[in-house]
Design a binder for these strands. Structure first.
Lengths: 253, 253
DNA sequence: TTCACGCCTCACGTCGCGTGAGGGTCAAGT
DNA sequence: ACTTGACCCTCACGCGACGTGAGGCGTGAA
């Protein structure tokens, strides 16, 4: 018995019969013989080829590529190199994913607050740098600061992601209003301002419209604040300030 | 403007519009609103959900599983654990694959010799340390050394791996013979000795039975050699020496 | 002869979208 | 007011590597 049937081959190589049928269909591995009854009969040579195929398949190589590789084995080295590259990239991705899962697990299991590293990852560097300290010195004694600090330190990474999304949404709202030519006193701009106020109110500290005015004025006074806004859209900081004042006016009535 | 259209969402989250359509089709992420014209409008909440989806997708989690996970978020931990398991298994597979590729590559272009780092990796540290230098001073002038050096410097990493395997096989043969109570003059022990001689002959330098005797005596004379053998099995070094002599006697007849 | 099991050939289903086709919508410019 | 061009919509088929029956023939042992 020097040939094998599909079932035998499948068992030995850990593939399914259907897979062998498929390889036959697409011409990747056509058994050298058939019995009178039409049974596929695989020879030693066929098995050697299948062996190769199985190995390459484990590399997630598409069947078509395997075919070309096996049929003109000349540039096997090039193929292998590319495959190695691909697998290594995939490996890196997977390790990243494991790290991500671990973080998710930790947070899931113990509502652990986000670490400074997490924040850096979300907001980029410079988030918790000198400015944070300066802000602490300037505002640390206020109730708003204390309230904000108390809330913020319980925020998980997921919470921060939401915060970030909200911040970006607000920013986008201002940009959209301004770009569409609406004045700072327009509905759209005032709505964005109100969104901004609510964001701070919900996420950081109680803020009424008057306090919001103060914040707005500070935004244009401090060049670092101005920059974050104006980098998105020139003149945005002033626009935001005006919108906030308009919004406060609207709510004062 | 507190909602977004497909294109905007797609840009921000790095997915395609078609993907969003698909998620809508299968009910994984149905936008909360539609414009009069039928445009999909995504709210903040929708985006938060999409955020989650994107993360889970990177873990290669099937969309259906993501859906159940997001919809009854209670056993997210279990899901995460299973995913972790899956990813780790895949990781192991991939590292195996990289090893396989490397071997294939080396065999494919079997000309590049192994680097010292390769050797360290195979044989551990101390392989190319002081002893190597001492050996060079003691034996460097001999023909055997020169022949060995000439051969060895062309060995590829794959070659070295084979060499190591052969060395371990020989060692195992000696250990097996000794443990089963066979004397050093037994067939089994002598066969192991002959295996040892052939290994050196094939891999390093021409070695006849007389030279082999000398080597055997050196093994027990030099405590560093003795150690490598006796660490495997007490008294092995002496046993090996006796077996080698017995084997040489056998071939002298 | 019967039985269980293995083999065959269609042929449709799956998953996560890609890729048009054919047509409406919307803000901007002429 | 009209046209452009960039969006958006809904079908609906395609892909890659098989899974999963359905319906039927082959084969070796009881």
């Amino acid at each position: 018995m020097t040939t094998w049937t599909v079932g035998q081959v499948a068992d030995v190589f850990g593939v399914t019969v259907r897979t062998l049928h498929h390889y036959d269909e697409i011409g990747l591995l056509t058994p050298s013989e058939r019995s009178r009854a039409g049974y596929r009969l695989y020879t030693d040579e066929d098995l050697t080829r299948l062996q190769q195929i199985v190995v390459y398949r484990r590399l997630e190589m598409p069947l078509e590529e395997i075919a070309t590789l096996l049929d003109n084995g000349e540039d096997a080295v090039a193929h292998l190199r590319r495959q190695r590259e691909a697998v290594m990239t995939r490996l890196d991705e997977l390790t990243d994913i494991v790290v991500a899962i671990d973080r998710a697990l930790e947070r899931e299991m113990s509502n652990e607050p986000a670490t400074p590293e997490d924040l850096k990852e979300l907001f980029g560097d410079g988030f918790e740098d000198e400015y944070q300290q300066e802000a602490h010195e300037r505002w640390g004694h206020t109730d708003a600061w204390k309230q904000s600090a108390a809330r913020v330190k319980r925020y998980t990474k997921a919470d921060w992601a939401e915060v970030k999304a909200e911040m970006e949404a607000v920013g986008a709202a201002f940009v959209a209003a301004k770009r569409s030519g609406e004045p700072a006193t327009s509905e759209a701009a005032m709505d964005a301002a109100e969104q901004h106020r609510r964001h701070i109110n919900d996420r950081f500290y109680d803020i009424d419209h008057d306090f919001h005015r103060g914040l707005a004025d500070m935004y244009v006074a401090d060049p670092r604040f101005t920059k974050t806004y104006d980098d998105q859209e020139p003149g945005l900081a002033a626009y935001v300030r005006d919108a906030i004042h308009a919004n406060a006016d609207r709510h004062a009535e």
